[in-house]
């Protein structure tokens, strides 16, 4: 049982946790800046990015894919800004125009090119394939100390861990400027912070997290983790520090519970096969958010106590 757990479930759970945390951290700031849907837009435009990278390089080397996806994400952000300014269109609609168009272009390219030989299709891009990231060489917990077995870990694990670490480091290093520019842009500008650069850096960080996570777990988890854990955390506390910690906790909880429910839940109900782990992780994060909406201590708007007539 232990050996089986290490072999089949340990790496997917760890990858899920790293992906969730890497997305939830920038999500906190995106939500406070009313940019929550940037995550949605980014996770859609990743598809054309990897398709173009595939067409240019002819292979599925993950570095090229990551670069293509990150390039597409940055391009999308610039295009959204351009459409917003040039056409004087409200941000939501500008975003909708850009990401749907790029996604449609990606699907068309994918259909036009011969990708049948490689594992590249829309469904995989959306749903990921967390369950397949298993650690073949593992014999049990002791394999964690065995260099030969460790070398056979799926590539996604070290990459996701690295990205997660980078995101955590960036959040800690740029904590003060991020916090100040998020809450009071005018003040941040007055004390000389490069507000526009901070905003763009945040979006790029989110894009990097999204691209790395997308590669391993599909875009549903990416959108869900950008929004649900930070949103639930926002309803738990009024302090940013606490909110970020809550969101990390919720992200880890959703990843673990989601994976366990997906893998073992059907067995409890007499089913034979597991269901999609990515979908289940998103569903659990939604459940957490739902509970926070109903019972979170700070769920009401400031100054708007609960109306006794409506409660």
């Amino acid at each position: 049982m232990h050996a089986e757990f290490v072999q089949l479930s340990l790496t997917p759970i760890l990858i899920g946790i790293f992906a969730s945390v890497a997305c939830a951290l920038p999500g906190n700031f995106l939500i406070l800046r009313r940019q929550a849907l940037i995550g949605d837009a980014i996770s859609h435009v990743v598809l054309p990015g990897i398709v173009v990278a595939f067409l240019l390089t002819g292979g599925v080397a993950s570095m090229a894919m990551m670069l293509g996806a990150a390039g597409a994400a940055v391009l999308a952000v610039l295009l959204i800004e351009a459409v917003k300014r040039l056409g004087r269109i409200e941000p939501g609609a500008a975003m909708g125009v850009v990401f749907t168009s790029m996604f449609a272009g990606g699907v068309l390219l994918l259909e036009q090119s011969d990708t049948s030989s490689v594992h590249l299709d829309v469904q995989h891009a959306l749903m990921g394939n967390l369950e397949s990231l298993i650690w073949f060489k593992a014999k049990g917990w002791h394999s964690l100390a065995d260099p030969a077995a460790l070398a056979a870990l799926p590539d996604e694990l070290p990459r996701m861990a690295l990205v997660c670490l980078v995101v955590v480091a960036l959040t800690v290093i740029f904590w003060r400027p991020l916090k100040i520019s998020t809450f009071d842009e005018g003040f941040a500008r007055a004390i000389g912070l490069p507000v526009a650069a901070i905003g763009f850096g945040l979006v790029v960080t989110a894009a990097v997290a999204a691209v790395a996570a997308f590669d391993a777990v599909g875009s549903i988890i990416v959108i869900a983790m950008f929004i649900c854990p930070p949103a639930a955390a926002r309803l738990m506390t009024n302090r940013l520090e606490a909110q970020v910690l809550w969101s990390v906790g919720f992200a880890v909880l959703a990843a673990v519970l989601g994976y366990v429910f997906a893998g073992y839940g059907p067995l409890w109900f007499g089913g034979a096969e597991a269901v999609s782990a990515a979908g289940m992780i998103a569903a659990v994060s939604g459940l957490i958010l739902g509970l926070a909406c109903l019972f979170g201590p700070c769920r009401a708007r400031v100054g708007q106590g609960r109306d006794p007539a409506e409660a």
């Binding site: 549903i220 979908g279 994060s285 708007r301």
Partner: peptide
């Protein structure tokens, strides 16, 4: 709740889609 509409949109979108994917599997 104190959440803005964009957060609500993103949450509903991703969670319902996740549930849908689970149902598809």
């Amino acid at each position: 709740t104190r959440l803005a509409e964009d957060a609500a949109i993103g949450a509903v979108l991703s969670v319902f889609f996740g549930i849908g994917v689970v149902l598809l599997t």
